[in-house]
Computed example of a mutant assay.
Amino acid sequence: MSQIPKLSFAIILIFSLLGCESKVQPKQKAFLALEYQSPSYQLIKSDCPFQFEINQIAKLEALQNYDRCSFNIRYPKLGATIFLTYKPINNNLKALLTDAQKLPLKHTIKADAIEADIYTNNIAKTYGNFYEVEGNAASQAQFYLTDSLQHFVTGSIYFKTAPNYDSILPAASYIKKDLKHIVETMRWK
């Protein structure tokens, strides 16, 4: 009888040593693999002194009680909105520029980086800055455009969620391209 417990013990020991071997592998860093449809743009015509193109997945809403030429461009599936505001220039270009340039600076507390690109289109007479914000800031991109004589437009992206850069990065990257497209297609009437 002493052979059976020794044999059982030996078998259990062998299986324990061989069966419990685990290879520890570190988890890979991963980003959410979201796919968005290729953008298709449509020209927005209105009574405003400008026109531009927006992505067809976006919904344009005119702000009735604010200003007849201010719009919200909503992305319902992405939980984001581009806020677009027009102001006529009435001997106040310097004040408009100062306000538009201060807006990205409000995000420096939470932003990891803010990159400003100068935008110039002499043919369309559109001049301004495009700001890309990295980090947990409330807005991921902003711009202003002007013809320096009559027209001034600002735009910015905001999400309906707490700013967590890693979580909103795919959607923010997609909408930044649309915001750049608005800048590039802006025409004064």
Results as ranks from 00 to 15, higher is better:
S2C: 01
Q3L: 12
Q3R: 09
Q3I: 08
L7G: 05
S8I: 15
S8C: 11
A10H: 01
I14C: 07
I14P: 00
F15T: 13
S16Q: 01
L18P: 00
G19S: 05
C20W: 09
E21F: 11
S22Y: 08
K23I: 14
V24I: 12
V24Y: 13
Q25K: 14
P26R: 12
K27E: 12
K27G: 02
K27C: 04
Q28R: 14
F31R: 04
L34N: 12
L34W: 04
E35G: 06
E35D: 07
Y36T: 04
Q37N: 11
S38A: 15
S40M: 07
S40P: 00
Y41W: 06
K45T: 11
S46H: 01
C48R: 01
P49N: 10
P49I: 05
F50K: 05
Q51S: 12
Q51K: 05
Q56G: 03
I57V: 14
L60S: 01
L60K: 09
A62D: 01
D67L: 04
C69H: 02
N72F: 02
I73D: 01
R74G: 02
R74Q: 12
R74H: 09
K77N: 13
K77C: 00
G79C: 09
A80Y: 01
I82M: 04
F83G: 01
T85C: 00
T85S: 13
Y86C: 03
P88E: 14
N90A: 08
N91Q: 12
N91M: 04
N91E: 12
L93P: 02
L93M: 06
K94E: 13
K94F: 03
K94N: 11
L96P: 04
L96D: 08
L96G: 09
L97T: 07
L97N: 14
L97Q: 08
T98L: 14
D99E: 12
A100D: 03
A100L: 08
Q101R: 13
L105V: 10
L105W: 05
L105C: 00
T108E: 08
T108G: 00
A111S: 11
A111Q: 06
A111T: 06
I114N: 01
A116Q: 12
D117V: 08
D117T: 14
I118C: 02
I118R: 10
Y119G: 08
Y119D: 11
T120V: 15
N121C: 10
N121S: 14
A124H: 13
K125I: 05
T126D: 06
N129P: 00
V133A: 05
V133H: 01
E134Q: 15
G135V: 06
G135K: 05
N136A: 10
A138K: 15
A138Q: 15
A141Q: 11
Q142T: 02
F143H: 03
F143S: 03
F143T: 01
Q150S: 15
Q150R: 11
V153E: 06
V153Y: 02
Y158P: 00
A162E: 14
P163E: 11
Y165P: 04
Y165D: 14
S167D: 13
S167W: 07
I168Q: 07
L169Q: 13
A171E: 15
Y174H: 08
K176T: 15
K176D: 12
K177S: 15
K177C: 04
D178F: 05
K180D: 10
H181F: 10
V183H: 07
E184K: 15
T185W: 11
R187T: 12
